[in-house]
């Protein structure tokens, strides 16, 4: 998939994460803010990078504002933001495919 327009998913509530994706000309610029940066910063980065790779994202700006989200929440929010940026978040989601 390719990030086509700016899109956002998630909230700033506890246990959630807010993801913003924006188109970019080349490369992935991943920025992470987290309330648990010291303990989980590396894990968040790994999960986010892995998820973006699974979605086939090769370029774009991705901002993660984490409020202590579980891995599964982080993945869900990244997927929702990317699918929204492509305008395909409402129907025929490949559950179990790239969404996993």
């Amino acid at each position: 998939m390719e990030i086509q327009k700016t899109a956002m998913a998630g909230t700033l509530e506890s246990s959630d994460a807010q993801i913003t994706v924006e188109p970019a000309d080349s490369g992935i610029q991943l920025s992470i803010e987290s309330s648990v940066m010291n303990q989980y910063g590396r894990q968040i980065k790994k999960t986010a990078e892995e998820k973006l790779r699974e979605l086939g994202i090769t370029k774009g700006k991705v901002k993660v504002v984490d409020k202590g989200a579980l891995d599964c929440t982080l993945k869900a929010r990244i997927e929702a933001a990317v699918f929204r940026s492509c305008g395909v978040s409402q129907k025929n989601i490949p559950w179990g495919g790239v969404v996993r």
Partner: peptide, 9 residues
Amino acid sequence: DAARFSLYH
């Protein structure tokens, strides 16, 4: 839409 991603995971 976002709720479904969250539900699935």
